[in-house]
């Protein structure tokens, strides 16, 4: 168990150093590098989808496939919970 803890400390330290250096070397907060796609969506969301809310336009219109997969995941999770607890009847 002691060796396991030592290995955990080593792995955690490596990952911690990696994350902190990556956070320090990221581009500055609030100044994104490229913004073409989002500028297009912001400019055209009222014309193309008729919605005032840009996020809803992205969720249901521009990227509807993501929402379809997400709904499938939610359905599968509920089905999994039902399958887990169905045997406990009595």
């Amino acid at each position: 168990m002691l060796t396991r803890n030592i290995a955990g400390v080593i792995v955690f330290s490596i990952v911690a150093v990696f994350f902190i250096f990556t956070a320090l070397l990221m581009h500055p907060f609030g100044v994104p590098d490229e913004s073409d796609m989002d500028d297009y969506i912001i400019d055209n969301t009222q014309e193309e989808t008729g919605a005032n809310n840009g996020v809803t336009a992205v969720v249901f219109d521009y990227r509807g496939f993501d929402t379809l997969g997400e709904a499938t995941v939610l359905f599968a999770a509920v089905t999994g919970v039902i399958v887990l607890f169905r045997r406990l009847k009595k």
Partner: peptide
């Protein structure tokens, strides 16, 4: 306004209500 977006909002809202409450 917005075509099918409100209808999809209603459908997904119903789905999320039933799903989370079922869990």
């Amino acid at each position: 306004t917005a075509g099918i977006l409100p209808l999809m909002n209603f459908a997904v809202g119903l789905k999320v209500i039933a799903g989370l409450f079922g869990i």
